[in-house]
């Protein structure tokens, strides 16, 4: 029953990966290159531009994931309680899941750029003497706008997974811990958090992989140099000089590999931290 779906998914995924890998090795019969070499990888790994792009992309993915995970955990803990208006708050919490990333990015641009709503409000209230004095959060070196967008969008995603986990876990384990002498903080730290870790890790990894490999938000809200890795790869791929294409494909291969390695590392780091 699963075979047709698996065939399509695996065919497209493995096929695309294989074609990209072959292209990254310099094999491009279209422009007369019919030999395999590692020149594209060598050039990329030795270039400062790539290194800076990698650091920026890692910073965006890691910071977004950590902030979104922490805020989602806090939100899930609050939404787990019974209080008046909980269903309304719960609805509002989930609503931006339906908003596309691009729409969110335009919103961030509209609100937080130096010509945006907050800059103009700050100017109107004489907090700044001209809009350009408003802190740069868009096209900035720290990628604050990009991180804000990802955090805003991913909190409900992680939060919903955690809420579902909390419902499954129930409150009995915490009751046991309290009965055994744990304070509320201890029962959270030593019981609920470890029980939530699989869900937190899984959702964190999905967010990390997505933010590490996503193109459109860094393209819209990011600076030109250094650009995020997917933006750099796209620029090279669409270069009029076809000789740049093996480098673009090598970059894509490296992004895929780094994503896999970093997801593994993130999982190990978090697990070890929580078990301490």
């Amino acid at each position: 029953m699963l075979s047709p779906a698996l065939l399509i998914v695996c065919g497209l995924f493995i096929g695309g990966l294989a074609l990209g890998f072959v292209g990254s090795l310099g094999y491009m019969p279209l422009i007369g290159q019919e030999t395999f070499n590692l020149d594209a990888y060598r050039q990329i790994l030795l270039s400062e531009r790539f290194l800076l792009s990698f650091l920026l992309t890692f910073h965006i993915a890691f910071t977004s994931t950590v902030i979104a995970s922490l805020l989602a955990l806090g939100a899930a803990l609050i939404l787990r309680q019974s209080f008046l208006g909980r269903s309304v708050i719960n609805f509002l919490f989930q609503i931006n899941l339906t908003v596309p990333h691009l729409v969110g990015a335009v919103g961030i641009l509209y609100l937080f750029s130096q010509s945006g709503v907050f800059a103009r409000l700050a100017y109107e209230f004489s907090l700044i003497s001209k809009p350009s004095e408003f802190p740069a959060m868009i096209f900035d070196p720290l990628a604050i706008g990009i991180i804000m967008q990802y955090v805003w969008k991913e909190i409900p995603f992680i939060g919903l997974i955690l809420l579902a986990n909390m419902q499954t876990i129930g409150r009995d384990y915490e009751a046991v811990a309290q009965s055994l002498g744990a304070s509320r903080w201890q029962s959270f730290r030593h019981v609920l958090l470890p029980l939530l870790m699989p869900g937190l890790l899984t959702s964190g990894m999905i967010v990390f992989a997505f933010t590490f490999g996503a193109y459109e938000i860094p393209a819209l809200l990011g600076q030109n140099y250094p650009a995020a890795l997917p933006v750099l790869a796209y620029q090279a791929f669409t270069d009029v000089d076809l000789n740049a294409r093996p480098e673009a494909l090598a970059m894509a291969m490296i992004i895929a590999l780094l994503s896999a390695v970093m997801i593994y590392g993130y999982a190990r780091f978090t697990r070890r931290y929580i078990r301490k």
Binding site: D172, V176, L180, G181, V191, P194, L195
Partner: peptide
């Protein structure tokens, strides 16, 4: 609960699986 010195054992034992 943590100050009462009364410890409860539950029906489902509820051992911490991790």
């Amino acid at each position: 609960p943590q100050s009462r010195d009364a410890v409860m054992v539950f029906q489902d034992h509820l051992l911490f699986p991790y």
